[in-house]
Design a protein around this nucleic acid. Structure first.
Lengths: 229, 229
DNA sequence: CACAAAGCTGCACCCAGTGCCATATCGATG
DNA sequence: CATCGATATGGCACTGGGTGCAGCTTTGTG
């Protein structure tokens, strides 16, 4: 099986986090880690391409899982909804190990190098969203633009909720927070993507403004909404 | 003056790019660069904290400029519009040196380390947007969430347009492309932020619908629009 | 038991980045 | 003009992440 092998890998992660937490990330050398884990230095780099990778041991797996999840989508489903579903998948990875996630959050928050690394990881998730959306929105006006913007918005919503949960030391309800944040994005782009292959082009524009709104405001709103096509 | 001093800095950038373009980034050592520039190795790190920084020589300045620009905003202006204005500022930095920007784009496209670095740079722009928007949307429902999501959307729109311009080798019209992309974002979040302090609550409802539009579509649109508040 | 494949280790090496100190350059001042 | 001090530069040695290689051990298999 795939879960019984990596005893050494887990030992390295454990040793690394123990040292990171008691001395700090930059004050810990790879030699320190392998000494504590009782393995050779070379073996560390067999399991982790770089020192930073040991902080995000499961992201690679999660990323491939998520990509596969998107690839296996029903071609008729709502693309935005599907991406939101993928986000919930990612969130689950964090909530499965709350204490670990919180510890990692504290580390990444104060070590610039780790923050940069995390950024590149998050970016890969966002790219996965965008690639999927590009495929679904292909042919539509501004398809790739929409795909990129929506992917970024979804990722930002996820991060916002996740970070607030992490700041609460894993006490709040992460699922609910993410649900709320995704709701906001879905409201903003509400099926602004592909209205499913079966729905023909439509021309419904709804503007809700408030009594007493300055006229220029209403006009602007109409213009900008129309421009969406 | 501030523009007459950094002869050495410019020489280092020139030497670095010459070597990067003819040998590749990773095949070029810092020693190679300083040898070509005819300066001491230590001086390189005096001007650039890391080898990667030499690829983005002006981002630090641009970032502080942009932050100052946002900080100097009229408190009554439309926040989203202001952020879009800031984006145009960033774009200008790219379009001022098209050939340089295109060369850099080719480098970052194929060197993972540089891509990661660029990511962290872009992230700082996005954070500047988000911080500004957080200040402007403070107190509103989901203020920070909106700020983060809108900032991400704006940055994504900018990047989408910028990258398409860079792929065209700087031939297309970058301004127009970014304008179009920003238009999409403004349509999606059309002043969903603060309706300016002077605008009191309004209650105007305008519905533009094409004859024969499916009713569920209208309802969905109404829901999503109402939720924007 | 023999043998091969895979995993682990140590070693030597490259290169980015840093701290420290010596030197040079230049402007102000007596 | 000489001197002094601030600032810019250069050289040097050192740390530490990351890699290629070659040898050793373990494990599974006939």
């Amino acid at each position: 099986m795939s879960s019984t092998k990596p005893a050494m890998r887990d030992a390295l992660v454990a040793a690394a986090f123990q040292l990171f937490l008691e001395r700090g990330y930059e004050q810990t050398t790879v030699d320190d880690i392998v000494a504590l884990a009782g393995v050779g230095r070379r073996s560390f780099f067999r399991y982790f391409p770089s020192k930073e990778d040991v902080v995000f041991p499961d992201h690679e797996r999660c990323l491939t899982d998520m990509t596969a999840f998107l690839a296996a989508s029903d071609p008729g489903c709502d693309p935005l909804e599907r991406v939101c579903e993928a986000v919930r998948l990612v969130l689950r990875m964090y909530t499965e190990n709350p204490t670990f996630s919180v510890q990692r959050y504290r580390l990444t928050k104060q070590v610039p190098g780790l923050r940069a690394y995390e950024l590149s990881v998050v970016w890969r998730y966002e790219r996965a969203f965008a690639e999927y959306l590009r495929g679904r929105l292909k042919g539509l006006h501004d398809g790739t633009l929409r795909a990129d913007v929506i992917a970024a918005a979804v990722a930002a919503a996820h991060n916002n909720a996740l970070r607030s949960w992490l700041r609460s030391d894993g006490h709040g309800d992460a699922e609910q927070a993410v649900e709320h944040a995704l709701g906001y994005v879905q409201a903003a782009f509400g099926s602004a993507g592909a209205p499913a292959a079966d729905a023909p082009p439509e021309d419904v524009v709804v503007i809700v403004s408030r009594r007493g709104a300055p006229l220029w405001r209403v006009v602007q709103e109409i213009e900008s909404t129309l421009e969406r096509d």
